[in-house]
Amino acid sequence: MIWLIMIYAGFLTYLTRFSMFSKSFARWLPGWIETPLYYVPITMLTAIIVPEVLLIEGSLNFSLSENLRLIAASFAIVVALITRSVFITILSGLICLWILQWLF
């Protein structure tokens, strides 16, 4: 049974990925769609980041003494803007977080 459901879920997931790669589907996309599509990465990735950083156990936490991830993430933003390196940003963010955790 689980195999059936895995294949079902896998198939639908694959369809979501292939959806706009199909020429017939892509033909449906009007030219002006390019403008809103530009915001896809900025919004979707932010949507993944924000709850992870701002929510602790489901509730908003802006307290700098409790929400260490918020501090580390803010630091990471600065590092990202300066270095433009994914690797350095991840490392500095993690190190920052671990130092904060060790200190507090």
Binding site: P41, I42, E52, V86, I90, G93, L94, Q101
Partner: peptide
């Protein structure tokens, strides 16, 4: 903390993308 690394990865990619007012608003 290591799954926090996923957020860090995306921060690294999104931060430099935010240039215009509409980007900030979005």
């Amino acid at each position: 903390s290591l799954t926090f690394a996923i957020s860090l990865t995306f921060i690294a990619i999104v931060a430099p993308m935010i240039k215009r007012f509409s980007d900030v608003a979005a």
